[in-house]
């Protein structure tokens, strides 16, 4: 059996009787970059919300490393190693870029950003180094002292990813990371996501933009009308007739 970081099994989610997801199963292999695509309203973000704990599923089970986490709140999932980014930015606008990243580290195993000990310890210095490392990966070193709200939108999205990464997650759930980015920023995003994978973070990307998905993902799951249409390598999935029909409507 494959080594799974996350398994979402037979997830059904209904909103007031409307079915957003119907028995969708997602198996995310450790160390993979797993894309979830589909047209608007296919249930991509709903699935991500269920995996990150923002929505309880109507039915189904979410497992992290084989442990049932279906009933855990997002706050409880963060220390277990599940972090996420948001489609619409949720940064601390008045704080500097670096402070945003530092706050993201708080849940970090054992040490934690907020200890009662007021003086800086060796562990704090380690956290500092890690924060600077996350800033470097996302090309934010030069902006670290800027207030987050003053940065252009694309850079703010990078800050949000850096903050989610700084918690050292096992699993990073990204909700439309490329949305609102310029063409160049999208190009930069691909090697950065790979760099995260190389550091041992399993990544799930919910994305509308097919180019990013096709370039960076190992496995792609295509959703349509709340059901799993197809799953496979990007080349296979995107070449399938069913997917063309779902996207182009012909």
């Amino acid at each position: 059996m494959a080594d799974l970081t996350l398994r979402a099994l037979d997830i059904t989610k209904q909103f007031l009787g409307v079915t957003a997801l119907a028995e969708v199963t997602l198996e995310v292999e450790r160390g993979s970059i797993h894309g979830v695509v589909g047209p608007n309203g296919a249930g991509k973000t709903t699935l991500l919300n269920v995996m990150s704990g923002f929505l309880p599923p109507t039915d189904g089970v979410v497992e992290l490393d084989g442990r049932d986490i279906t009933r855990l709140s997002p706050q409880k999932r963060v220390p277990l190693g599940v972090t996420r980014t948001f489609q619409n930015l949720r940064l601390f606008g008045g704080l500097t870029v670096r402070e945003n990243v530092l706050l993201g580290q708080h849940s970090h195993a054992r040490t934690g950003f907020l200890s009662l000990w007021p003086l800086r310890t060796a562990a704090d210095k380690e956290l500092d180094r890690e924060a600077d490392h996350a800033l470097r990966i996302f090309g934010l070193t030069d902006y670290r002292k800027r207030r987050a709200a003053t940065l252009p939108y694309g850079l703010q999205k990078q800050v949000e990813i850096a903050r989610a990464v700084s918690a050292k997650p096992k699993l990073l759930l990204m909700d439309e990371p490329a949305a609102g980015m310029t063409a160049k920023e999208r190009l930069d995003l691909v090697p950065r996501i790979r760099a995260l994978r190389d550091e041992g973070i399993t990544v799930v990307i919910v994305e509308h933009d097919m180019d990013v998905i096709a370039t960076v993902c190992d496995v792609v799951t295509v959703l349509n009308f709340g059901r799993k249409l197809i799953e496979g390598t990007p080349a296979d999935a995107l070449a399938s007739d069913q997917v063309r029909t779902a996207y182009l409507g012909t």
Binding site: Q75, F92, L95, E99, L103, G104, H106
Partner: peptide, 15 residues
């Protein structure tokens, strides 16, 4: 300052 800015997000980060 983070909690002043966005208490919900702070909670989600585990603060």
């Amino acid at each position: 300052r983070g909690v002043s800015d966005d208490p919900d997000m702070s909670g989600l980060l585990g603060i």
